[in-house]
Amino acid sequence: MPASVISVRDLGVRFRRNRRGRRSFKDLFAGKNRRSRPGEFWALRGVSFEVEAGEAIGVVGRNGQGKSTLLKLVAGVLLPDEGTVSVRDGVAPLIEITGGFVNDLTVRDNVYLTAGLHGMPKREIDRRFDDIIGFAEIDDFVDTPYKHLSSGMKVRIAFSVISQLEEPIILVDEVLAVGDKGFKEKCYRRIDEMLEGGRTLFFVSHNERDLRRFCSRGLYLDKGKLVLDAAIDEVLDRYNDDYNR
């Protein structure tokens, strides 16, 4: 049986709605009293699943049901309050895609900074630099400060950098909802290439066509709970039935 590359067990994470009732410093380390205090809510709780290498998983649910939170927990951006998240391989996170880019640096400097922060050696960035810029279609803006790019250009360069990472697991959070039609098609083809290469996809989206195109399996989250883990068509049918009630 293939080994799991992502293992989630009884996962729970809670947030504050406001400053009232927040946990003390002592509470954070004591690990006691799992009940929510006033002003707190569980964004996710009791979530368990396994992902095998090469699977393409779509995560669905209404806004505010814990989808992006789950993705950030898998990426290691957030830590759980309950349970565990184990990720065996490295991840290429297409989450809040333009985050981490520095406005006052040029596009060139941002490419080296961002790729370097994700572990790509400088010699490898040197080798891939022209491909990154060419994919983003911003050859004339390489030495322009990042803050002067349009929002679409920012997304293009960010996607181009992150998609060059060779990590085995790809985390995608709605980034394909942004950009013109031509660039979306380039993104689709790049993701197809990644999947054909045996990489694992963990994909949060509201776009049913994208989910059916890329994913074979789905996770349906509602009110922070995992309602259904099944084939993507079954998950989307259940989600649509619930949504239309």
Score class of each variant (00 low, 15 high):
F202G: 10
L195F: 05
E185Q: 14
R189P: 04
I191Q: 11
E167C: 14
F183D: 12
G197Q: 11
R217V: 00
R217Q: 10
K223E: 05
K186D: 01
L176C: 13
A177K: 10
I170G: 00
P168F: 02
L176W: 09
R189E: 11
R199V: 04
D241G: 07
A231S: 15
A177Q: 14
E167H: 15
E234F: 11
K181S: 14
L236N: 03
A177D: 14
C187H: 10
R190M: 06
R213W: 00
V204I: 13
K184T: 12
V175R: 10
F214A: 13
Y239E: 03
D229T: 00
V235F: 09
E196W: 06
D241R: 10
E208Y: 10
D237K: 10
A231V: 09
V175F: 14
H206P: 07
I232K: 06
E208R: 15
V204E: 08
D210S: 12
L211V: 05
R209D: 13
L211M: 09
L228I: 05
G182D: 14
K181Q: 15
L176I: 01
G197T: 09
L226N: 03
V178C: 08
K181D: 15
H206L: 07
V175Q: 10
G182V: 06
G179K: 14
L226F: 03
E208C: 10
R238G: 02
E185F: 10
D210Q: 13
G182R: 15
N207R: 00
G224S: 06
S205Q: 03
Y220F: 15
L219C: 11
A231D: 15
D173F: 15
K186W: 05
G224I: 02
C187D: 02
R238I: 02
H206E: 06
K186C: 08
D237V: 11
L201S: 04
E185W: 06
N207H: 08
G224R: 05
D229M: 05
L219N: 07
L228H: 03
V235T: 03
D180P: 13
R190I: 07
